[in-house]
């Protein structure tokens, strides 16, 4: 019985992971690619870890697998958020079908936030060395 559950979770996780990287290759722009990559990837990894927990069915292994699943599901959105903000603030080109952008004027303060002495300057810093 456990073997069948393990097999089902394994195949579902494998298919989701494969779809994630297929989307990574095929979708049109960076932020849309992140939709496929971070979430379907995390879901696939989580499913495979759960399959592993069903296969070695005892408390120590199950708890470790659950901890790993929690960790993956907790860090994937944080990483996605960081990369997405970096990509957006560095003015990555958005796909032409993007039809509304309410963030357009509010992003500049974010980039200069990490070095407080630059906050007072209103224009972007000069690229010269």
């Amino acid at each position: 019985m456990n073997d069948i559950v393990t097999a089902v979770f394994l195949i579902a996780g494998g298919i989701f992971s494969f779809i994630a990287s297929l989307g990574m290759l095929r979708l049109p722009d960076t932020i849309i690619r992140m939709h496929a990559a971070t979430k379907a990837g995390a879901l696939g990894a989580g499913l495979i870890l759960i399959a592993q927990a069903f296969y070695h069915y005892e408390l120590a292994t199950t708890l470790r697998a659950l901890a790993a699943v929690t960790f993956v599901l907790l860090t994937a959105p944080v990483a996605a958020h960081l990369i997405g903000r970096a990509a957006y603030c560095s003015k990555v080109t958005l796909w032409e079908k993007t039809w509304i952008d309410e963030l357009a004027n509010t992003c500049n303060w974010r980039v200069s936030e990490f070095e407080p002495d630059n906050n007072s300057k209103s224009e972007a810093p000069d690229p010269k060395e």
Binding site: I31, M34, H35, A36, K39, A40, P77, A80, H81, G84, R85, Y88, L103, T106, C107, R110
Partner: peptide
């Protein structure tokens, strides 16, 4: 949840 992604 896929389809939505927090940016900022």
């Amino acid at each position: 949840t896929p389809g939505t992604l927090t940016l900022d």
